[in-house]
Design a protein around this nucleic acid. Sequence first.
DNA 1: TTAAATTTTTAGGTTTGTCTAAATTTATTT
DNA 2: AAATAAATTTAGACAAACCTAAAAATTTAA
Lengths: 218, 218
Amino acid sequence: MKFSVSEENYIKSIYHLQVQHQRVNATMLAAMVNTKAASVTDMLKKLQKKTLVDYEPYKSFVLTEAGNKLALTIVRKHRLWEYFLVNKLGFAWDEVHEIAEELEHIGSIELVKRLDEFLEFPSFDPHGDPIPNSRGKMSILKRSNLTEIPLKTTAIVNYIQDQSATMLDLLRHYHIGIGTKIKVSKRFEFDGSVEIKIDKLPDAVLSCQVAKNIYCTI
Amino acid sequence: MKFSVSEENYIKSIYHLQVQHQRVNATMLAAMVNTKAASVTDMLKKLQKKTLVDYEPYKSFVLTEAGNKLALTIVRKHRLWEYFLVNKLGFAWDEVHEIAEELEHIGSIELVKRLDEFLEFPSFDPHGDPIPNSRGKMSILKRSNLTEIPLKTTAIVNYIQDQSATMLDLLRHYHIGIGTKIKVSKRFEFDGSVEIKIDKLPDAVLSCQVAKNIYCTI
DNA sequence: TTAAATTTTTAGGTTTGTCTAAATTTATTT
DNA sequence: AAATAAATTTAGACAAACCTAAAAATTTAA
């Protein structure tokens, strides 16, 4: 079955809202798809007919199994394209989202398969978000920032929240990037700063503000 | 100014029809965009308002300068994506057209620029059609087939018209592909067959039927 | 537990791009 | 040049996806 770009955007947005907050409401969804609540109602009816959402007027709506599956294929495409844009075309992290919003609606399944292969089956996109595999599975590794992870445990950086130029500059200075293996050796209660160890580099101390923005998987 | 996928498809189709036959009519255009003549009329009015076509009811229509420019950017995107699909993702010639039909409508100019760069500024797509550069210029080298090119002149294969499996099989046998340097040494009037020379290979004779399908630039 | 506030739905429109059927205009034949 | 054929345009509708304004339902708060 084929779906319109609009339908796909609704499904994707419901998915993201369900992941963040567990209960979704029409107002939030309207804001996310950049439309009005009345239009959301119209679309929910349509999506229910297509068995992508379970919808109870005035009550609630959730993705069905089929809806969830569709959402994952869209998220998969979005993140694979982001990876391509950054790692093959040399775009910066913060330039790729909008372009991927368009590319994620390209239909061909074979294209996605081959793109995945070409990129060597990446597990995380340039923002550190996990990429669902062809069966819709992805790491659900909880990402924790450097103020949260256990001491003396090797973690791998996979997400930077604040992507401002100044933050990027700072990260370059400390040789920290996506994929960097890092260990927190000490936390200073006074100001929340952390001491880190990175292989082959001298120990360093990061301010709480910085540490909060660096997310890792363990 | 932004244009809808439909508008872009009309512009692209008018362009292609103008290149092939010099005069375009509404019936042909309707067939090409897979719709009815009445819809073409509607769209022509809209495109005229947007100054992409010069349109005289009941008489004729042609692309304006702006329309031509737009058409070239679409053709450029289409051919660059085809090149990408074949040369980076490993698709076969005949599998990429439909996918490129979708990709050609992705908006970002920066994307096209970087894709072009990533592909190292190719001049021809996998079908041998020239790729317009960022200023809309492309080789207008007339492609001639092997029954037309002058004798004893080195030519480079850049297009195969019939892309059936049987034709591809035959070409593989003769070691002929896009980019192959080939010379026609003799033409047999009787049946139109041609004798060809390819470096490091023994001379061979191709039937007229085959020769007609192999296009070269000189 | 009512009243007020918020959320959601309905009703009626709009725009884009399509359609069919009928009316026009242009082109072709005799 | 008139008659027929073909191409084109108009008129009126339709589906998708959106909108505004008003009505209905639900939630929150007094």
